[in-house]
Computed example of a mutant assay.
Amino acid sequence: MRGLRLLRASAALLGCLGVLLLFGGTPAFAHTALKDATPAPGAKVGPGTSVIALTFARLKAGTTPKLTLTGSDGTAVHVGQPVVADGSVICAAVTPLRTGVTTLTYTVTAADGDTQTNAFQFQVADGAQTPADPSACQGLSLSAPDRGGSDAILGLGRTTALSVFAAAAVVIVGGAVLASRMLRGARPTGRRRATW
């Protein structure tokens, strides 16, 4: 009887190991990894770098990746609207980079629809070689980096800022009208009550 129990336990253990090997050893194809980048993670580039490119296995068609750059002093580096070339290469124009360590953060959607966000750093140094624009990005019409110019008011989009100002004006005028009516109602009428 004891031998039968040991045999059952051994068979159950072997069955569990077999299931783990069968399903646990299958690589996850759901995610796309960064295959190449210009500038590459940890690279040293010159301040004249004007285009960045990220290469992935495959990206979901019709999605727009998001790229942000942060300089060593913590200020944002302006990036143009990213363009996807060949279904796997993201290209974007950037304003001239300042010296120091720059952080590039990207959000992409893999072919299976999974959204991923990651970041890496590279160094911008005087005297370093400026990388050539990647071949996949050459010939593309890349939009100039948005510097948040005349369309922005106090850091908000023009339409949003105007809506906020209009709502504030309505609140201020309405408050003034209500306050004046309340003050009129609180004034004495001039009649005195007779006291007996």
Rank of each mutant, 00 (worst) to 15 (best):
L54A: 00
P145S: 07
A85F: 14
V124Q: 09
G127D: 04
A53T: 04
P134V: 15
L67F: 01
G48T: 05
T68G: 05
L156Y: 11
T103C: 07
L140S: 03
S143H: 06
Q138W: 04
L67N: 02
V124S: 07
V89D: 07
A93V: 06
T64P: 00
T55R: 13
Q116N: 02
V108Y: 02
A85M: 09
D126M: 11
T160C: 00
P82K: 14
G71T: 03
C91E: 03
D73I: 08
T115Y: 03
T55G: 06
D112E: 09
T68R: 13
S135D: 13
L142W: 08
A144D: 06
T103Q: 15
A93F: 06
Q116I: 04
R147V: 10
D126G: 06
G74D: 02
T103F: 09
T99Y: 06
T49D: 11
Q81V: 11
Q81R: 12
A43E: 10
T130W: 13
R158N: 03
T107M: 07
F120M: 06
T55A: 14
V45M: 07
V89F: 11
T64I: 05
A132Q: 14
G62H: 08
A85T: 03
S50V: 06
T109K: 05
Y106A: 04
G74T: 08
T117F: 07
K66R: 15
R158V: 02
V51G: 05
G149W: 03
G113E: 04
R158S: 04
L69I: 07
G87E: 09
T109R: 13
A92T: 01
V45R: 11
G113Y: 05
I90K: 01
V89Q: 07
F56K: 08
V84A: 04
G157S: 15
A125S: 14
G46F: 11
T159A: 15
D151V: 07
T105Y: 10
V89R: 13
P82Q: 12
S143V: 04
S72Q: 12
G42A: 10
S72K: 08
A57H: 09
V84R: 01
K44A: 12
G148D: 12
Q116H: 10
T49E: 12
Q121Y: 01
G149I: 05
V89A: 14
Q121P: 00
V77M: 10
A161F: 01
A85L: 10
L156F: 10
P65I: 12
D151F: 09
Q116M: 12
T103D: 09
A152L: 13
V94P: 00
G139C: 05
G80K: 02
P47Y: 08
Q123Y: 09
N118G: 12
L59F: 03
L156D: 03
Y106V: 03
F120A: 03
K44R: 12
Q138I: 11
T107L: 08
D133K: 15
T105F: 06
